[in-house]
Simulated scan of single mutants.
Amino acid sequence: MPHQHPSPRIWDISPPVHEGAPVFPGDTPYRQRWAAAIGPGCPVNVSEITLSPHVGAHADAPLHYDAGGDTIGTVSLVPFLGPCRVIHAIDCGPLIEWRHIEHALAELPPRVLVRTYRAMPVDRWDGQLSAYAPATIERLADLGVQLVGIDTASIDPADSKTLDSHQVIRRRGLRVLENLVLDDVAEGDYELIALPLKLTTADASPVRAILRELSFQ
């Protein structure tokens, strides 16, 4: 019989999405109702959902932070698929500074995900979330990074009105993933798969973000 290689290990880094899932204050929460139900004369269940595209793990489009920016359905998928590095900056405080991640930057792949929580609060809004310092994103862009991710709801502080890190992303042409769950992911290199939906007019898209191990043949 031919030798069967074991399947690569997969980490699901997406938080659960359901009614009550936390959203940015004022944003549209997830809601679901049944438009059709299995019964006499109806062979299927069909639901209707209402949600912000920023619920759960999601990819921001340039349109989110640039009035003339591209929608999420028109951006390249390349940054959302490929080798990435998970870096721990647990309990780093309000901002991820360069000193929090510089221990893990040798031979950096073009995607970087930073873990800041010991346990990501999937069931509540955290107004004290950690964010990226704009200078950190600038320096990552200088190293060729195409995408940055974080296990909080935003790469900017929750109360920011200027969105300085988002503006670095805009100016440098990077992509961003937010609301990832990295609790069970060790520092190291993985394959990222986190494709946004082809929402042709939207400012963001939910993603089912996963990591797949690289060390398999």
Rank of each mutant, 00 (worst) to 15 (best):
G93F: 06
M120W: 04
D123T: 15
P109E: 15
W11M: 00
A61P: 04
I72W: 10
G127C: 14
A104Y: 00
V46P: 00
L113N: 01
A35K: 12
Q32K: 11
V55H: 01
V112M: 01
H88A: 14
Q32H: 12
G68Y: 12
R99G: 05
D60Y: 14
N45S: 09
Y30I: 02
E97H: 06
L77K: 07
H58A: 05
G93K: 09
V78P: 00
D123V: 09
R115T: 01
I72T: 06
E97T: 03
R33E: 14
R124W: 03
A67P: 06
F80A: 01
I96D: 00
P43C: 07
P15W: 02
T28F: 12
G73V: 04
R124N: 12
A21Q: 07
V46I: 15
P29I: 02
V46M: 07
P62C: 11
G82L: 10
G56E: 08
L108Q: 05
T71W: 03
A21M: 09
V46A: 11
T28V: 14
V78Q: 09
L63D: 10
C92M: 04
G68I: 01
Q128F: 10
H54C: 09
Q32G: 05
F24V: 15
W98V: 02
L81S: 10
D126S: 14
P53A: 13
R118Y: 02
C42Q: 14
V122T: 15
W11F: 10
G56Y: 00
V44Y: 13
T28A: 08
S76R: 03
G127F: 09
P109F: 07
H58V: 06
V55D: 08
V46C: 01
H64P: 02
E48Y: 13
T71I: 09
Y30F: 15
T28Q: 14
R118S: 08
H54Q: 13
G56T: 11
V75W: 01
L95N: 03
R33S: 14
